[in-house]
Amino acid sequence: MKKHNFNPGPATIPPSVLEEAAHGLLEYRGSGLSFAELSHRAPQVMAVVEEASTLVKTLYGFGDQYEVIWMQGGASAQLAIAPMNLLDEEHSVALINTGYWATKAIKAAGEIGRVAVLASSEQSRFDHIPKNWTLPADAQYLHLISNETIDGTQWQEYPDVAVPIVADMTSDFLTRPLPLEKFGLIFASAQKNFGIAGCTCVVINKDWLHARKKRAIPTIFDYQTHIETQSLYHTAPTFPIYVACLVLRWTLAQGGLAVMAQRNAEKAALLYNEIDENPLFTGSVQSADRSLMNACFRITKPELEEVFLNFTGQHDVVGIKGFPTVGGFRASMYNALPLESVQVLVDLMRDFAKKY
């Protein structure tokens, strides 16, 4: 029986995508080979890479000044690769500490160059996104974690600043339309909203990239290397890109990002309403900054935490245990998770409250 999958990533994949990916893994379109067996320079693979890039641009409406490339190493690698490419020795990268991934970004960028931490919500256990901060005059760009997967906060609106925004969108990529003019670079690893683990999508404003005073970095980490070789400088993670392409097709066929945003808002409202109304549970994040992707909450009777986890597990709900350093519960509701699964979780919360 299929589970109700609230895992934070790797996460839910549309059933139709899994079916098509399974066929492609066995044999791809009469080639006599699995897609995973094809050369990364085979015409079939190159066509999939190009289609996946085109679909990202189509779904968001990116113009010709933006380039889409596919890289390895996940978001963690991009925390270092981005400042390698974008930060010169005369400027700083501005960051706001909103949680686990912002903390990692601060450390990674600090190993490359100067970092200005503008504000932090660490003292309140990252229960909100700081609003009162000033961008320093020497900031080259503002690095934001669009959605904190572990702590459960999300930028509902992106700030107006005088420099480009570099955004780690790993857990809310392809979930809503964006004010594109604000961004110089966006990156997201695939295992949340658009595929399986193994590839990372990077969207770059080429005009901004070319205007940077470049520091000396290894060729393999240079964004321009991957732009010029159409993401095929080395052996690309071909099967993860293929699955990403299938999910991108599915996203477009569902109606695009506006439809994804509407569905995600409905799912989040259903769960947060229950969290707020059920006396046995309480939210971990202030209402204005709650993530639509990762709802973090706690039980008001801590001795029942494991009991509730066992109860939901017995009813085929998986993946809601909070991150070890945070505790509590976390329900991840990415694009492919159906509303029906959220309703099942809400019903279980109500039943559990009646019993306890």
Rank of each mutant, 00 (worst) to 15 (best):
G9S: 00
E20W: 05
A21T: 03
F35H: 06
H40A: 12
Q44N: 14
A47M: 11
E50C: 05
E51Y: 01
G61C: 09
E67G: 12
V68K: 09
S76N: 14
A80E: 13
I81M: 13
P83V: 08
M84G: 05
E89L: 13
V93Q: 01
L95G: 15
I96W: 12
Y100T: 14
I106F: 06
A109T: 09
G113W: 07
A119D: 12
E122H: 00
E122D: 06
Q123E: 13
K131F: 00
N132C: 07
A139I: 10
A139Q: 09
L142E: 00
H143T: 03
L144Y: 06
L144P: 06
S146E: 13
Q154G: 03
W155Y: 15
W155I: 12
E157G: 05
E157T: 15
P159I: 01
V163C: 12
A167T: 11
D168A: 04
D172R: 06
T175Y: 02
L180T: 05
K182Y: 03
A188V: 00
G195Y: 11
I196R: 04
C201A: 06
V202S: 07
I204T: 03
W208Y: 15
A211H: 07
A211G: 04
I220L: 13
F221M: 11
E228M: 11
V243G: 08
C245M: 15
C245Q: 14
L246C: 07
L248H: 06
G255T: 05
G256D: 06
M260E: 10
R263Q: 13
A265D: 09
E266S: 05
N273L: 03
E274H: 11
I275C: 10
N278Q: 07
G283K: 10
D289Y: 01
C296M: 03
L304Y: 09
E305I: 02
L309R: 10
T312G: 00
G313Q: 13
G319H: 06
I320G: 05
F323I: 00
G328L: 10
A331Y: 02
A331E: 05
N335H: 03
L337D: 07
E340C: 04
E340K: 09
V344H: 01
V346A: 08
